[in-house]
Write a protein that binds this DNA or RNA. Structure first.
Length: 260
DNA sequence: ATACCTCCCTGTGGGC
DNA sequence: TGCCCACAGGGAGGTA
């Protein structure tokens, strides 16, 4: 699930429910989601400290605890951050439960455990975790975006999906952006014309803005995302049957009539 | 630099 | 009904 808009929603959850509150207890219910940190060190570094202002870069969510370390979440395909009360029944996929002041809880819920939680010792460690990522998709300027496209000969969708080039876009967002900009996913990025490249940037901004408001890529009837799982999906713009194939290892859906 | 492959996990839905 | 496989909105690491 989680792409930039989803993680932005988790950041808001963390900010509104967690910021300024002390972590009373860390309950690791499944160590399979801990990355590079064990239960003991996690508890020692986090329990008793207050959550700071959370920060998101791409699909990573960084939550400072106290004045030193930070929790760093990556939600994989199925992760989410769920606000709860201590008395609420646990979900079978609640992997890590933070109990805060006032019986509040933040639960890291994740079915597949493809990614998980890391602990950064301090600001330097946070920076190292982020250093492989490109600029955040919400921050990148048009000039920088156009330069990115011009510098790649591979498929434009592969570029958008590459977190080291631009951080935050996932499979659904990429397909939606390409569909809105009327660009076929397999086109070599550097072959795009000026007008196409500008449409790509505009589409990215609009799709991100709307998706962030919904904290997800909304499966609206007028969006490609609203139809990709239909039995016989057709383009919501022109009615042409949609096509589907793998691009950069992911299912890619596009309209052969409006995307060139 | 880029395209492919496998692997990491769990759950679901379809075909047989 | 049961079994097996492919696939699912994540990424890393290795190979050509």
């Amino acid at each position: 699930m989680p792409e930039l808009p989803d993680v932005e929603g988790f950041r808001e959850v963390l900010d509104s429910c967690g910021r300024g509150r002390r972590v009373r207890h860390v309950d690791v219910r499944d160590t399979g989601v801990l990355r590079g940190v064990g239960v003991r060190r996690l508890r020692r570094e986090v329990e008793g400290r207050r959550l700071g202002r959370p920060h998101r870069h791409g699909k990573l969510l960084v939550a400072p605890v106290g004045d030193g370390p930070a929790l760093v979440w990556h939600f994989g395909m199925t992760g989410e951050l769920v606000p709860a009360s201590a008395g609420d029944p646990l979900d079978r996929h609640d992997r890590v439960v933070l109990t805060l002041d006032g019986e509040r809880q933040l639960r890291y819920r994740d079915q597949r455990k493809l990614q998980g939680v890391r602990l950064a010792d301090g600001p330097g460690a946070v920076a190292r975790m982020l250093e492989g990522l490109g600029p955040d998709a919400l921050d990148i300027g048009r000039g920088e975006f156009l330069a990115l496209l011009a510098g790649r000969r591979g498929a434009v969708k592969a570029l958008l999906m590459d977190q080291s080039a631009i951080a935050g876009l996932g499979n659904l967002l990429c397909d939606e952006i390409l569909w809105r900009a009327r660009v076929a996913p397999g086109r070599p990025a550097r072959d795009l014309g000026e007008a196409e490249a500008r449409r790509m940037f505009t589409a990215m901004r609009r799709v991100l803005a709307t998706s962030c408001r919904a904290s997800r890529v909304p499966p609206r009837p007028g969006w490609l995302t609203g139809h990709r799982d239909d039995a016989d999906p057709v383009c919501p713009r022109c009615g042409t049957p949609l096509r589907s194939r793998r691009v950069s290892g992911r299912r890619t859906v596009w309209c052969p009539a409006c995307q060139h």
